[in-house]
């Protein structure tokens, strides 16, 4: 009775010893399933996307033909399509700047002044909204910004109704109402990605030796000078690291442009419409290559700024 059990144990031990000695085999066995998944499902899909971006879309029969063409990429340069790219780029830049301006003081306060209970409180208070449901956060903003909603109520109570009217009348940032204006869209984008900006800045400020700031003040620098010449340059990798998120996430988003802000396509909405309503997968694929290239360039720039060490 005991023999098969014993040999079973011996076999298991032999396998263990074998794997321990041949650790490369062990490594391969462990790595194979995840690599297969990512190699086939993910990289394979990206490749399929790239291939499709070179396919021909027949305008008359509304079908996709597997015949190679550069036409989709040429179409990207048409004025109407190029406008979409520029509009998305401008919004992504604006969102990153806005997030940096708002996120920096918060991160600075977290590192320098939040002690005791405040430390844990601030950390979790930034983390929670970051992970909270994305679609619900956006939905909540449509409720807040709606005409007759909370934002309008507070603005009218503060007697700023006319100020808002004239602000919304401005070109480029304005719109009919808060929820259909560029301003509203900028606000929602910034809200959704702000925590992604705060955390990297916080970790990069944490690594700055506080003596440097004291020394700067001792040597007679005003707070503004210390900020410009000491704090900001040293915290810059964190700012750039944060902007990777704010920029790239804005660049590829299509839910917020659909729900908040004026009409006019973003890259994300264009991709969605092209593949869904029109069925022009090749053009949609060509449009997705734009964020891939822009984000690739941006990551190269960020790496050169040392942002990856701040992540």
């Amino acid at each position: 009775m005991t023999t098969p059990v014993k040999s079973h144990i011996a076999l298991r031990r032999n396998i263990s010893s074998f794997l321990y000695r041949r650790s490369t085999v062990y490594l391969l066995l462990l790595l194979l399933p995840p690599l297969l998944w990512f190699g086939i499902v993910y990289l394979g899909s990206l490749l399929a996307l790239l291939v499709q971006s070179g396919y021909t879309f027949d305008d008359f029969s509304m079908t996709v033909l597997p015949v190679f063409t550069w036409k989709n990429y040429q179409n990207l340069l048409l004025a109407a399509n190029f406008d979409i790219v520029l509009r998305t780029f401008a919004m992504a830049t604006a969102v990153s700047l806005f997030c940096a301006c708002l996120g920096f003081p918060i991160a600075y306060y977290m590192v320098r002044y939040a002690g005791g209970w405040q430390r844990g409180f601030f950390y979790i208070a930034v983390l929670l909204p970051m992970w909270a449901s994305y679609i619900v956060k956006v939905y909540s903003w449509t409720v807040i910004l709606a005409k007759g909603g909370i934002a309008y109520w507070f603005i009218n109570q503060a007697g700023l109704g006319h100020a808002l009217e004239s602000l919304l009348a401005l070109p480029f940032i304005g719109g009919n109402t808060l929820s259909t204006s560029h301003l509203g869209r900028l606000l929602v984008f910034s809200y959704v990605w702000l925590p992604f900006m705060i955390l990297p800045i916080q970790s990069s400020i944490e690594r700055i030796n506080p003596n440097l700031l004291t020394a700067s003040a001792d040597l007679g620098a005003r707070p503004g000078q210390t900020f410009r010449t000491i704090l900001l340059p040293l915290a810059m990798p964190g700012v750039v690291a944060g902007s990777i998120f704010t920029f790239c996430l804005t660049f590829g988003d299509y839910i917020i442009p659909t729900l908040v802000g004026p009409s006019g396509f973003f890259i994300g909405t264009m991709v969605y419409t092209q593949q869904g309503a029109i069925g022009n997968m090749p053009m949609a694929a060509a449009f997705t290559v734009v964020p891939i290239v822009v984000i690739g360039l941006y990551l190269t720039f960020a790496k050169r700024m040392g942002a990856f060490d701040a992540l």
Binding site: L102, G103, P105, I106, Y108, Y109, M110, V111, R112, Y113, A114, G115, F122, A125, V126, L128, P129, A132, K137, S140, W141, V143, I144, I150, Y191, L194, P195, I198, I205, E206, I208, N209, P210
Partner: peptide, 28 residues
């Protein structure tokens, strides 16, 4: 790198205001 210096009021205001901003839609 906590500082014993006094925190300027505007910084405190922005920090707590920012946290309030982050949680406002959730409360709504």
């Amino acid at each position: 790198m906590r500082s014993d210096g006094k925190c300027p009021f505007w910084l405190k205001f922005v920090a707590f205001g920012g946290i309030f901003f982050l949680h406002f839609p959730i409360i709504v």
